[in-house]
Design a protein around this nucleic acid. Structure first.
Length: 955
RNA sequence: GCGAGGGUAGCCAAGUAUGGCCAAAGGCGGCAGACUCAAGAUCUGUUCUCGAAGGAGUUCCUCGGUUCAAAUCCGAGCCCUCGCACCA
């Protein structure tokens, strides 16, 4: 028998039956509802087991809730908004090899691939593939509600337009300007994925400082450290580079040609009046407002015209570069290789102490240069290290010195912004942006920062909006609970979000069609759209029906009346009212689960937008967050060469095993592990379960005994653990309870009982099938059917946990027996005796009575018992007993010993099981009555016996 | 730097909130046995050290503390992972 073929046959069979029975098409009814969602995935690729992991966390919960009596809605859709699809299509068109390789790995042949040069094709192709994969995985999704985003789906498009109109009315969408990394050749913003170099680099803000020359022009320098303005000793200019004189407002600025271009892109008006070489300015003087004197301009080959303005202030006290450059110049001055006028200026320059950095003194640049033994400007590597160290230490620990006027005593951090502000106000400074590091566009052009004006923002920085969102977060549940803190923090640091772009696919802004709404902004409240999507789109991924404001106002907000909404939408009035009712039934969303990457954006945005648009009772109820899947411990990633597509996983392991392995990978917030080793063997376990179900009828229904009581108790215990785990979304624990723990108990039960009882085994099989059904629904349906049920286990109600009862006596008794077996095994192992006979002496009754009396602190009882005993029992045994008693008291075990000893009869238990023990140890077993007189005491062991610790003698 | 989380036996990992029943669940891997012509699969046992009697010793990043008692509480330190955005 081929295991995987068997599994595939079962999986197909049940997927077909579910679909025929429309089992997961959810409609409102009288039951409590449970509405859960997964953030729709981006349609530029196929699902891999990482996507599957996240979706399955929703799926498991949905299937579980369905079996606990909830009316469950689990919809699915496809995200197409933004640049990636368009960019990938373009790469196909260009025949780019990496992209072609990616397509091939997804099973797309070179002949088919041409079609993908058209972005629209992606939006039709991948949703199909995703739905197919999800169906093959056995997901309990209501597929009637699927859709795609962007204007390619006019109905959804009108929904997003409605959303933005509402946001704008409430003043949550605002106009502003915004700095982006920009390619000057392509004239577009360059996101991380479009960069050849510089991923993660962002625009940073430089302070421009202006120095008036004797001619009345301004030399303009750029710095990230305006607080060093009090330590300037001179200016640096690159003698070889080209500079321009440009008219800015009414001033003439001197700066590098590149800098002038950049400032123009950043929205500044510059009129270039003329150009000059850097060397024309060396030896000139310019006035520093912070120093209150003129500074000399010195030649510096290291001053790059493409960085900043190409002119730099020199602060040798705090800049290792400046310090070392100055040192070099001084050396040249001494050797008479400098022009006399410059040489004269150079020898008089000394660093000015402005910042005290603990551990570095007041001249940190000198300190570090000396320590690292940097000899010249050519020592690039060491200089980089020095610069970084001084910068970091100064920023976090440095304090401004006396000569920094009103800033004295401030930390560098505080002084920086204060000084900058002051200089900006006095007109001695200005602002310029630069990328935080070098960024190169795919077109191989070096990127700059552009300030885009008239940019629309979602005002996540708005204080009131933040407060409301905090309330929403406070009212929510989180899985795992510790992510709550993350969310609280994100709400605080979120700033205004540029919500529109010029490129990619997306809904145009209703009031300005030059802009398209970007992908993280058109996907924040669409969970509301799911509730009516099947009515509007009739199960298709797109619908041409356009819907107006009044329609959505009525259906989602209850504003206006159904007549107007009906007219505007073309739906009948009753259809419109039906949609309103359906929305009200399903909303709010009870749970949304995603990968942890969406905490800092999407999930928080969704909370913000719900707060802005919907009344409090429709805010989300809970979020689940999970980590990134690893495959057998190594990170999954295309670059690492070990990504596993869902389709491939299903083909290799089957849907149920894939699901079970994903469930077993669950690890809260840390990265879960898809354990292929577990997957390899899981299929067999599932088929064993199926076999058990099939073979129930061949079992005897002989009378029940204590082992059946025990088995039922263990089932109750495992079921309790299972329920708790499911409620917490701790799927690994749930699988452990349902599969491992249940199985182990059954094995022990069968071993102990010899032949299992049919009724007990049936209860066991039914319970286990139900417990596993959320995880491995196909094989569970098969087993359920094999047990003679006509219904689907998928919609079967699980038992109420309170109806499952643990029998404490049965559990304690069996636990006791296992303890005795373990002790005997231990003795046999150590002594290496092959036993002929094992004698087990249980503690005499009086010991148990005494122990309980002592534990409960009933002195009267214990002294009475002692008195009674004093004549009959040897004092030595009494002493031993008390010694053991105090030891157990010390260890804290006394209480549980007393409790257990109170509910079991040790002697009877062992006596009843001598046959089993004899079989287990292959020898004779004797259990003399500890209370009977004249019992033979082998090797004087009898008197050592203690409650729950019988004495054992092996011979 | 800011924010969040973490360091447990060969590996992965539960336990930490509520200290004692914790030499510490479970899974992988290893070892031994059963089955088999054999291999694989499966099943059983075992897997910190020592031990000819169920015991003892040493463990849960490091150091120190609280306590009759610490993987668990407190303090200090070392190390690791993730996020810090306009990018899905």
């Amino acid at each position: 028998m081929n295991i995987s073929e068997d599994m595939f046959r079962i999986e197909e069979k049940w997927q077909k039956r579910w679909s025929e029975a429309r089992l997961f098409e959810s409609t409102p009814d009288g039951r409590d509802k449970f509405y859960a969602t997964y953030p729709y995935s981006y349609m530029n690729g196929l699902p891999h087991i990482g996507h599957a992991f996240t979706v399955l966390r929703v799926e498991f919960q949905c299937r579980y809730r369905r079996m606990r009596g909830y009316n469950v809605l689990f919809p699915f859709a496809f995200h197409c908004t933004g640049v990636p699809i368009v960019a990938a299509a373009k790469r196909i068109k260009d025949g780019e090899s990496t992209q072609m390789q990616i397509m091939r790995s997804m099973g797309i042949t070179d002949r088919q691939v041409k079609k993908f040069s058209e972005p629209e094709y992606w939006t039709r192709y991948f949703p199909k593939r995703w739905e197919n994969s999800m169906r093959r995985l056995g997901m309990s999704i209501d597929w009637r509600r699927k859709f795609i985003t962007t204007p390619l789906n006019p109905s959804y498009d009108s929904f997003v337009r409605w959303q933005f109109n509402v946001l704008r009315e409430k003043n949550y969408v605002r106009l502003g300007s915004h700095a982006v990394i920009w390619c000057p050749k392509d004239n577009i913003p360059v996101g991380d994925h479009d960069r050849v170099k510089g991923e993660g680099e962002t625009p940073t803000e430089y302070t421009l400082l202006k120095f008036r020359t004797d001619e009345g022009d301004f030399l303009v320098t750029a710095t990230l450290r305006p607080e060093t303005a009090f330590g300037q000793t001179n200016l640096w200019i690159n003698p070889e580079a080209d500079y321009v004189r440009a008219l800015v407002d009414n001033e003439v600025w001197i700066l590098s040609k590149e800098a002038a271009d950049k400032l123009t892109e950043q929205g500044r008006k510059l009129t270039v009046k003329g150009s000059l070489k850097g060397e024309e300015l060396t030896g000139a003087y310019a006035f520093s407002p912070t120093m209150g004197k003129r500074l000399v301009v010195l030649p510096a080959p290291f001053a790059s015209p493409s960085k900043g303005t190409g002119i730099v202030t020199s602060v040798p006290s705090d800049s290792p570069d400046d310090y070392i450059a100055l040192k070099d110049l001084k050396r040249k001055a001494e050797n008479d290789t400098l022009e006399p006028s410059i040489a004269h200026a150079v020898v008089n320059i000394e660093p000015v102490e402005i910042i005290d950095t603990p551990g570095y003194g007041t001249l940190p640049a000198k300190t570090v240069v000396d320590r690292l033994n940097i000899r010249s400007q050519k020592d690039k590597e060491k200089l980089d290290r020095a610069r970084e160290e001084v910068y970091r230490e100064g920023y976090y620990k440095g304090v401004m010195l006396e000569r920094c006027a009103e800033y004295a005593g401030l930390t560098v951090d505080a002084a920086r912004s204060a000084i900058r502000k002051k200089l900006l106000e006095s007109g001695d400074a200005d602002t310029m942006y630069e990328p935080s590091g070098e960024v190169v566009c795919r077109c191989l052009t070096r990127c700059i920062v552009k300030v885009v004006s008239n940019q629309w923002f979602l005002a996540y920085g708005d204080q009131k909006w933040k407060e409301d969102t905090h309330e929403a977060i406070a009212s929510m549940r989180f899985y795992p609970p510790l992510v709550r803190k993350q969310f609280e923090h994100v709400v605080d640091w979120l700033k205004d979000w540029a919500c529109v772009h010029h490129t990619g696919l997306g809904t145009t802004l209703p009031w300005d069609d030059a802009w398209k709404i970007e992908s993280l902004s058109d996907s924040t409240i669409y969970m509301a759209y799911y509730t009516i999507a099947h009515v509007i789109q009739k199960g298709k991924i797109t619908s041409d029906r356009k819907l107006g404001q009044a329609f959505f106002d009525y259906v989602f907000l209850g504003i206006g009346d159904s007549d107007e909404a009906a007219v505007q939408s073309g739906f009948s009035r009753s259809k419109t009212e039906e949609m309103r009712k359906e929305f009200l039934y399903w909303y709010p969303m009870d749970m949304r689960n995603s990968g942890k990457d969406l905490v800092g954006n999407h999930l928080t945005f969704a909370a913000f937008n719900h707060v802005a648009i919907f009344p409090r009772e429709h805010w989300p109820r809970s979020y689940g967050v999970n980590g990134w899947i690893t495959i057998s411990g190594t990170k999954m990633g295309k670059s690492a060469g070990n990504s596993l597509y869902l389709d491939d996983a299903i083909a290799r392991f089957g849907a149920d095993v894939t699901r079970l392995t994903e469930a077993y990978a669950d690890e809260g917030f840390d990265d879960p592990n898809f354990d292929t080793g577990f997957a390899e063997t899981a299929g067999k376990r599932l088929l064993q379960m199926l076999d058990t179900a099939k073979n129930l009828n061949s079992l005897d229904d002989s009378g029940e005994n204590s082992m059946d009581v025990w088995m039922m108790s263990m089932m109750a215990r495992h079921y309790g653990g299972y329920i708790a785990a499911m409620e917490d979304m701790s799927y690994k624990n749930a699988v452990k309870s349902a599969l491992v723990d249940m199985q182990n108990s059954a094995r022990w039960y069968i071993k102990r009982r010899g032949t299992p009882n049919r009724r007990t085994m049936r209860k066991f099989a039914e319970l286990q099938v139900m417990m596993l059904a959320p995880f491995t629904p196909h094989v569970c349906e098969e087993a359920w059917e094999a047990m003679g049920n006509q219904t689907f286990v998928s919609t079967q109600l699980m038992p109420e946990p309170s109806t499952m009862i643990e029998n404490a006596g049965a559990l304690a008794g069996e636990g006791y027996l296992e303890g005795v077996i373990a002790d005997i095994s231990e003795i046999l192992k150590v002594t290496e005796i092959v036993p002929e006979k094992i004698t087990i002496y249980t503690a005499a009754k009086w010991k148990t009575h005494l122990l309980i009396a002592e534990q409960t602190g009933n002195r009267n009882d214990s002294s009475a018992i002692r008195k009674q005993l004093s004549s009959g029992v040897a004092t030595r045994e009494m002493e031993k007993f008390y010694r053991n008693l105090s030891r157990e008291r010390q260890s804290g075990r006394l209480k549980s010993i007393a409790e257990t000893a109170g509910v079991i009869d040790e002697h009877r238990l062992l006596n009843e099981n001598t046959d089993f023990l004899a079989k287990e140890f292959r020898c004779r077993i004797e259990v003399p009555d500890g209370d009977a007189a004249g019992v033979e005491d082998r090797a004087g062991r009898r008197e050592n016996s203690f409650p729950l610790r019988p004495s054992i003698f092996v011979e």
